[in-house]
Amino acid sequence: MTTTLSETTTPAGREHDPPDRPRRLAHRAGPADRVFRGVSRAGGLAVLLIMCLVGGFLLYRGWEALHVAGWSFFTTEEWAPEGGDFGIAAVLTGTLLIASVAIGIAVPLAIGTALYISEYAPGRLRRLLVNLVDLMAAVPSVVYGLWGAFLMEGSVLGVARWMSTWLGWLPPFAVEGVDPNDPLASETVYTRSTLLAGLVVAMMVTPIASSVMREVFSQAPVGEREGAYALGATRWGMIRAVVLPFGKGGMIGGTMLGLGRALGETIGVVMTISLVYEIQPHILQAGASSISALIANRYGDASPFAVSALMAAGLALFVLTLIVNLIASTIIARSRSGATGDA
């Protein structure tokens, strides 16, 4: 240490001195520090272990059922594990349908809310609105389920009848076994449908997607905003030219994050659909299916093999949400926000 110092400071030593290298910073941690690091590392590893245990255990227990069913697990619509005839074709389709209805409703709402909060709302109101959207994410799903099952069911009925009457030529909106011209037709074919479940799930997804989008929108650079205004843009022109292109990553990421939540939502779906074990492509018709509702309805099945089959279904759902969520977090981190990336 002292020798290098004297060498660099003396003018004579400068010529044959090697070029400046960064000083080697050796840091010897004390015993307390070492204990601290060990404990926190153990905490991190414990969390990692728990998380991997969930996936590993699902795979381990579901393997038996997957092994028995083979590839037909993905093509069978029935769910009768005792008879060896079970698969997730119906429930997986149902899950995706409910999630897409939810995303279809939630994304416009989320973009509108996020734009309103970040661009239109006056300063004082903004904080209140951010808090309200956060509160919306904290409302228990069972409360949304009650809202859907008891309040919205009646209103959705009319909408569903109207849509099936006028848009019935589109395959998803068709309803079988009903004559739109018959005024006395029973309306029960429209109840407890994929649409209702999607509406309930949309209420849970909107705040999640909206808060991601709002964060990204509000990080659109001020210079470019003012540049757009200086060129004579209206507010909407500025939003289209600056905020939306800048927030594209956040919008996609927020949507995917919402999709991940929508795929796994359970109790709101269980309370609003009547579960059927067949592919139900008509979103307005009574009867829908979802993996989470399947597990919630059938976990009481006593036989270990049935539980193993449910585990396999849960594993499929888990893998699906994991992929969606990883893509979402990658997109959000890559968008110019930097809110979630390593600073």
């Binding site: 796994g264 759902l317 949400t321």
Partner: peptide, 11 residues
């Protein structure tokens, strides 16, 4: 941890 925030509660 980020991936686990989307762990379906039923799972």
């Amino acid at each position: 941890v980020e991936a686990m925030t989307a762990l379906p509660s039923i799972v």
